[in-house]
Amino acid sequence: MDGHERKQDGRGGQRVAWAVTDTGIGPLLLAATPEGLVNVVFHASEAVRGLALERLGARLGTEPVEDPEQPVLAEAVRQLGAYFSGGRRDFDLPLDWSLISGFNRRVLRELASGVPYGTVVGYGELAGRVGEPGGGQAVGVAMGANPLPVVVPCHRVVESDGGIGGFGGGLETKRKLLTLEGVLPEPLF
């Protein structure tokens, strides 16, 4: 199989496996294709999970199948566990970028490779890094479209005035992630 072909599920779509893992920020739905981790979804209650899997299946042309033993998913669960217990600072997982393209993909790739654990970057600065000075608002849109939060750390993007900015997983989740990474102090009570 060359790099442009994808394993098929027999109905023309690519095989998508999923699993849910409990974390320090609640349950996360993880989905993977043969290419790599393709989606991470916050607050994966049964209702959220059903809607997310339906959308994912429509986008990728196949019905996702629960398979926590799929190698990428099993490794993602292991690495996320280590991250949330303080034993891992970055992720070494194959990523399937097929749910995002263009400017958004460029921004997220720069974020994944150029903003390490325990640091933050402003929306405008990140825009400048991908050759789009003045594109801070577009970076905000890219963060909102991130199909791989936590692993591609959109929680590390903040406002230039020191504000925390928005977050698809909710501001409390963003605070918890930034606290875990030592960017914000532990709450006093």
Rank of each mutant, 00 (worst) to 15 (best):
P147L: 14
R105I: 03
P116D: 01
W97G: 06
V115S: 04
L95V: 15
A112S: 14
L111K: 06
G118M: 09
G122N: 05
Y123N: 10
A145Q: 14
Y123E: 05
G122I: 08
R105T: 00
C154Q: 14
P147R: 02
G114L: 13
V151N: 04
V107K: 05
V150A: 01
Y123I: 04
G87P: 00
P153Q: 07
V130M: 02
P147S: 07
Y123L: 10
A138L: 14
S113I: 05
P116W: 05
L99Y: 05
S101K: 13
V151T: 10
C154M: 05
L126R: 06
V121R: 03
A142I: 03
V139K: 00
V120I: 12
N146V: 13
A145Y: 08
D90G: 15
V115A: 02
S101P: 00
G118Q: 09
G134V: 10
V120C: 08
A112P: 00
E110K: 08
S98D: 10
V141F: 12
P147M: 12
L95Y: 06
P94L: 12
V139Q: 00
M143F: 06
A142E: 00
A145G: 04
G87N: 14
L95R: 09
V121F: 06
V130H: 04
E110D: 13
R88S: 12
F103D: 01
V152A: 02
G118I: 07
M143H: 04
R156K: 13
L108C: 06
N104W: 03
G118P: 13
V120N: 04
L148H: 02
Q137V: 11
G102D: 13
D92C: 06
Y117R: 02
N146H: 03
Y117L: 06
M143R: 08
N104T: 05
G122T: 15
S98C: 10
D90Y: 12
P149T: 07
Q137F: 12
A145I: 00
D92H: 15
I100C: 09
G140M: 08
L93R: 15
D96N: 13
G131R: 11
P149H: 09
M143N: 05
T119D: 06
G140N: 03
Y123R: 04
G144Q: 09
D96W: 07
G118R: 07
T119G: 01
S113Q: 13
S101F: 08
L95Q: 07
E110L: 05
F103E: 00
L95D: 01
A112E: 02
D92Q: 14
D92E: 14
N146F: 02
V115T: 14
P133E: 07
L148Y: 02
R129V: 05
Q137W: 13
G86D: 11
G122A: 14
